[in-house]
Design a protein around this nucleic acid. Sequence first.
DNA 1: ACCAACCACCCAGCC
DNA 2: ACAAAGCTCG
DNA 3: GGCTGGGTGGTTCGAGCTTTG
Length: 585
Amino acid sequence: MNTITLPPFYYRDNFQQLLDRAGLLPAELQTERERQLTSMALLLSPQALALLVRLLTRKGNLFRSERLAWAELPDLIEPVAELVSAGWVRVITARAELNDLVGVDEWLALYNRDELLQAWGDQLVGITGVSRSKLKSWRREQLDEICKQALTAGQLQRCDLQTALWWQLVSDCSQWLETLLLLYFGNLQQSLTEFVLRDLGLARYEDLPLDASLCPFHSRTQLDAHRALFHLSPDDDWLKAADADALQLRWNALQDIRERVVDDEWLQRRWMRMVTRLARQAERLALPELALDWYQSCECHPARERRIRLLAIRDPWQALAECRAAWFNSYSEDEWQFLQGFVPRLGKQLGKLDRQRLQTSGVIDWYQAAALPAEQFLNLPTDWKQRWPRVEQAVLDLLAEQGRPGIYVENALIVSVFGLLYWPLLFAAVEGAFFHPFQYRPDDLYEPDFLTRRQLWLQEIEADLDSGVWIDRVQQRAIDKMGIQNPFVYWEFVAAGLEQGWFETVLKRIPLEHWRAMFEFIWQDPKAHRSGLPDLLILEPDGGYQLLEVKGPGDQLQANQKSWLAWFASQNIPAAVLYARPEPV
DNA sequence: ACCAACCACCCAGCC
DNA sequence: ACAAAGCTCG
DNA sequence: GGCTGGGTGGTTCGAGCTTTG
Ligand SMILES: [Mn+2]
Ligand SMILES: [Mn+2]
């Protein structure tokens, strides 16, 4: 039912946007070579630019000409000739050129197993002494390895596989594209597909007040640091597969760029988060010395928590000293919750070692236990697992039977209302906040001075809260902005609430002072405090309400949940943990 | 440490 | 922050 | 001859990736 059709050269139009943006920005953000490529691209004929973009947006920069064909480019001869004469593409015809210019791995990857066996099957059988069918079931890596050996030994010739011509994009093209993307988006997570998804209606963005400078970086150094950091960022798969050597190598590489990130708070935070992940993997590989060392250079959560846990084993007094430092200057609410639980355990351990030392002033007497959250208990039928997919759902139904109806809200309710209420502030025209149309949040949302830079908008919203119109505003905004990306709004949830009619009920059920307190807590750390909210909102028959965090068997309170519960307690907001256990038989 | 599964076919080895 | 289609591997 | 096990060659399938709009 997708009626939207993109123009035939949509990809070229989108790329043109990148080029235009690069042209607007200060020249020193591109290298001389990049500036040259940018201006050369602007001079290409429409057809040739289209072909260039098609090639650029594919993996690698080596292609088989016979595999390239697009409906909107019926003739490739002319455009490719233009690209060749302008120096973008090299057409490789002869074997000598191939050997000089193209790495074997890159070249082998152009062919599939069948093609390799068809061209070289007999020779390979001769070389390996393995039957053809056996060869066919070899792993691709293994097959490539044999081919490479035979090629270097001269037993096989690359041109045996020549079906047409090879086209090679000039090698610094991918670097250039990266720079263009960085200049446009300010990051390397977003790409040209943003345009397509938006134009197909699959992603909707607020109509943003773009900054006049449009510039995500203030210097080339900053841009390069950003790029380097991105390439060193360990993704989950890499991390899981990494061994000690891989980690050490990555650590060394990160050390090398460290001085390039120290000037930039944001880059530095990112650097520390990456190192923390590296150290966590070192822990899993039983390399505590490495982990301790690495954590020490990270001033962020959970680096210090992990460090304290490791120190508790090898040097518990040192661990306690770190706890003390963290207690008076914690990185986050989560870290503080960790200390709440951990310091007493550490104290018990140290008390056995040297009670006197522990009781010395300033060693542990700074610690004060916080009140524990209120608790409730509920028995589950023994077959609850068959009847409900989730324990929260089971509790919801059972409580409803007892005359306490409710809604499964988790983070969605309060955080969505927050996002809707503060919408004008979040998308306010503040210098440097927005520089491209695909941002779902202002660039500085997580900076400490975010709110102080938006006092005017804040005051207006405060006034709406005072006057009571905020309830209408939030609902109207939900309708007006439905589906538009916002870092706080869960649209399916909001849409369900409007449709089923309970959204307004809930807004009114929770008293304004409670809403205020919850919003305040989110503002304290808008990234971390978006999660950890209780599972259920119970609408008590007397007109009150209660927030319930459900804990089934084997589940325990997370740090972020404790943080929220502690805040609720301090603000007299009715919240509790409900422990659900199967009925004892 | 390693990995597709399935089927039909051939052939040698064995009773 | 999507879905269909094609290719490739195992 | 009939049965068996191992090797062979062909097909089909699911999962995952790339390309596309
Ligand atoms: Mn939950
Ligand atoms: Mn829960």
